[in-house]
Design a protein around this nucleic acid. Sequence first.
DNA 1: ATAAGCAGCACAACCGGTTGTGCTAAATAA
DNA 2: TTATTTAGCACAACCGGTTGTGCTGCTTAT
Lengths: 340, 340
Amino acid sequence: MESKKTTIIDIAKQLNVSKSTVSRALSDHHSIGLRTKMRVQQLAKELNYEPDQTAIFFKQRKTYLIGVILPTLSNTFFASIVSGIEDVGYNKNYTLLLGQSRDEEDREKKIVETMKDHRVDGILISMAKSTYNYEHFEMLKKNNIPTVFFDRIPQMQDIHFIASKLESGMLEAVNLLVKRGNKLIALINGPEKMPACKERYEAYIKALKQNKIKAEEKYVVHTDITVEGNNAAMKELLDLPKRPTAVIAFNDYVAMDVIHYAKRHKVKINKDITFISFANEAICNYMDHPPLASIEQFPYQQGAKAAETLLELLEQGSDENQKNFRNILLPSQLVVKVTK
Amino acid sequence: MESKKTTIIDIAKQLNVSKSTVSRALSDHHSIGLRTKMRVQQLAKELNYEPDQTAIFFKQRKTYLIGVILPTLSNTFFASIVSGIEDVGYNKNYTLLLGQSRDEEDREKKIVETMKDHRVDGILISMAKSTYNYEHFEMLKKNNIPTVFFDRIPQMQDIHFIASKLESGMLEAVNLLVKRGNKLIALINGPEKMPACKERYEAYIKALKQNKIKAEEKYVVHTDITVEGNNAAMKELLDLPKRPTAVIAFNDYVAMDVIHYAKRHKVKINKDITFISFANEAICNYMDHPPLASIEQFPYQQGAKAAETLLELLEQGSDENQKNFRNILLPSQLVVKVTK
DNA sequence: ATAAGCAGCACAACCGGTTGTGCTAAATAA
DNA sequence: TTATTTAGCACAACCGGTTGTGCTGCTTAT
């Protein structure tokens, strides 16, 4: 068990050459003679030499690390995104530094600091719910650390971001519902503050308009995404004088709850009321009464695309990074779960 | 926009002091006078000085990085584990380096190399399915990189590991089934090569024995965890001359499939045949006919414990690390889903 | 008044590589 | 044969900090 790692200097001493010679010999520099090259390389192998990357990183100012900051991994959506990021990074020899903000602004800020301290080459962020102050994002800009936001985008000018465009999926959903004869289409949306909520609402309104259905406020209800909140939202809809014939739920989990609730209240799923939701999680495939369809947002692809975008930024000069800001919106897509 | 980062030398020059003085002033060393300390610290603030961690890491031979290597994040179980690891690491100022082996031995090896290159302080690994050669693990040992294995443990001597002990949960499961009058208890196990599979089998045999039930080979079937495999396994059991009255499934996903299959074949769930499974995923709560119970393995806690263990190893000397090997088995626990 | 002690700081080595420059000897050209 | 090139290597600076040692000048004790 060799006690210490062998360095370039150890090799230099044993061979009575200078350490620069060793360095160049190992990197196959032309100004080193074949004989010495061989000797160095062989001894390096014998001594099990491995360059100290921290020294190299230190010298080259490049770490091959990319920071990933997101609310939590305990969420299939984000976990898939990270999975995509890692795959892309792996192929280009980048390693992920991971931090969960837990949706807390302070923790997010501290993680950003840590990432900067570790001199990551770039950062991918999905913002915490509670983040209202953007100074840590501004700081990244000032420090010229390439940053790409994904999914949860801050309201800032001149940033790179990538997100899923719900519009396309929502339109498909409404089209399908209308084609099946639905005219009273309700929306169970999430917490009003969330950008994702606002986006769904706008897409919903737009899709209705395209189908020449006039939107009615009472058919849009909100849930805080707890079981109780979900049930309450469904109750609200069921209590309406004219029940909706279709419900678009904030996501699959909400859909599961409200479907469960509706069943308990004698609603025939996808007959009396047709359900459609967001995310297209695997769970849907195992439900006895899954929603008719779910709008897939392709988290893995989103993560992969975000990583690719960041890596492109890294390859080009830092001047370019502050110019052409990439604002990428990936289309979502309706996936029909129940065919019959 | 300051073009370059300010260094300790910039400060030293402007104040006409040596860089060592600046360094010590910033770290509040006692041998520096109050006046200079103040001057240095103020200028440092003005110039927005931030120490270059890569230089410090390089000098101190400590990175505050811990590597996490696992098959995939696209799996609730592993994602939760990482979530637990990150939380513990965060509180002790460690950051995670993440790599997915995708269950490929080569990729696992390459990731281990990368982690070592990045001079992580320690590593947490859950082994890839296909890993049969352990030389990269041995290498970690030789290089004195503290390593803790979790969940998927290699068959090696003298390693630290942490895993979930299925025995306790399995015993609870069988006890419950027997209490409810079941005597023909089947096991739908996973791929025979997987250690998790072997462990379930042994726990199953042991639990039966404790309940004085004699195990019959035909009541133990295997699935490759595909939908088809799951259905085939269930078919095998239903085709038996004497159908089992209870089935313990490899995990919740398998359970969902086989329950689905059984229902299609007129089996009354948890009446004709009682189901119990592993993992206790959230999905169970949304099924119309969930298994009677599921054996929870507390992945988040497992991750947290693994991280704590590694951090303890980091705090003690490297001599100690190679002596008292921590083999921790966390008890699993039966969670009853259906109360009526 | 002088020696001893200590506060306060500078100098330099070090971590392990990379890289620009310069020296020496052999090879080639004049 | 002498001048010029060039191959092959050594030397040293550098990246940005940390840390051991030594020097200076003031304060205190004798």
